[in-house]
């Protein structure tokens, strides 16, 4: 079938991108990637985009196809086609280097490699006393389906406003270590992952899970990391104590009252009554004026003692691993 590619051209600094049209004749089940390779080989060797394996494993051929981020070697042209044409852009949340090629180092590798890499083997091989089971390793394998295609990062609401957020792909890599029972450094790793721009900055919007083409459910992996982190007694990194303060204040409120007292939690998260109170002043005053808040903390509600008992039980059940 004949079709037209409209491909974004220009180096990274080009503000107003120009689109170049390429006409090409391919089979309907040809992938967008292979069709673009054909264009590059037959028509224009200066067209820059990445990709190698052509079978969805190397993760290098992510582009925007008609505005949607896709693993282009797993997207057939017939599926992608819109009015006989396919529009190709570079992914938005990474600096563009040239044409459709993005700065992969800045976008993904610097983030992945900012976390201590490599399993540090703790002796739990197969056979022997510490042997791990297949059930232990299954979640690790699921996370390791990750091809670093970066599609999840493209859906990420935090990266959308802050390119430095590590993002679901890099955090899924941390999950792979923390949940690998053969690695002996879970605690150090959750501290590392908990620094600014790490797990606690995730807003659990579930976009990543919605985006990942390989059913890794990366948002869930981040939430699992947070759960494991709390288990290990870690609620922030070393440079963002407000995350731990937030957690503790939230927990205290629910534990003692059964419910959340947003105002008090906010004050405590910002660092206690004086600092937090000052920070909350403008909002707090406006809230009072509009009848949105009462000065007193929420009273205990019925059921509070039952909730408190659940917390006590939770501490007992999870005590062994603290």
């Amino acid at each position: 079938m004949e079709l037209t590619f409209n491909v974004r051209r220009g180096d990274g600094r080009t503000k107003d991108a120009t689109y170049q049209a390429y006409h090409v004749d391919v089979e309907p089940e040809t992938s967008v990637f292979e069709a673009l390779v054909k264009v590059r080989e037959e028509q224009d060797g200066t067209l820059a985009f990445r990709g190698n394996c052509a079978v969805g494993f190397c993760g290098d051929c992510t582009m925007l196809v008609n505005g949607r981020q896709e693993v282009t070697c797993l997207t057939t042209v017939s599926k992608a086609l819109k009015d006989d044409a396919i529009k190709i852009d570079p992914i938005p949340y990474a600096p563009t280097v040239k044409d459709v090629m993005y700065d992969a180092k800045r976008f993904i590798w610097d983030k992945v490699n900012s976390f201590s890499p490599g399993v540090v083997f703790n002796g739990a091989g197969w056979g022997g006393a510490q042997a791990v089971t297949d059930d232990d390793l299954r979640p690790v394998r699921r996370a390791m389906r990750c091809t670093m295609c970066g599609i999840c990062d493209q859906g990420c609401t935090v990266i959308d406003v802050n390119l430095d957020f590590k993002g679901p792909a890099a955090l899924t890599k941390v999950y792979r270590y923390v949940f690998d029972p053969r690695d002996g450094r879970a605690k150090e790793r959750v501290v590392e992952a908990g620094e600014t721009n790490g797990v606690w900055d995730c807003v659990h919007c579930w976009e990543a899970s919605d985006h990942c083409p390989f059913d890794i459910d990366p948002t869930h992996r981040i939430m699992d990391l947070r759960d494991r982190s709390v288990r290990l007694g870690v609620k922030s990194g070393t440079g963002n104590r407000q995350a731990a303060r937030h957690y503790n204040a939230f927990e205290r409120s629910v534990e003692n009252h059964g419910w959340l007292d947003e105002r008090n939690v906010a004050i405590q998260s910002y660092g206690g009554l004086i600092k937090g109170g000052l920070k909350m002043m403008p909002t707090g005053l406006a809230a009072l004026r509009r009848g949105k808040a009462n000065l007193l903390p929420h009273p205990k509600r019925p059921g509070a003692s039952a909730i408190k008992a659940l917390f006590a039980r939770y501490r007992e059940v999870t005590r062994t691993e603290r």
Binding site: V119, G125, W126, G127, A131, V132, T133, D134, R141, D180
Partner: peptide
């Protein structure tokens, strides 16, 4: 294979033995 496992490759197991 054992080296790869210890470097971090989560080879499938059958129970605790390598599958």
């Amino acid at each position: 294979v054992r080296e790869l496992d210890q470097l971090g490759v989560p080879f499938n197991r059958s129970g605790t033995a390598l599958a």
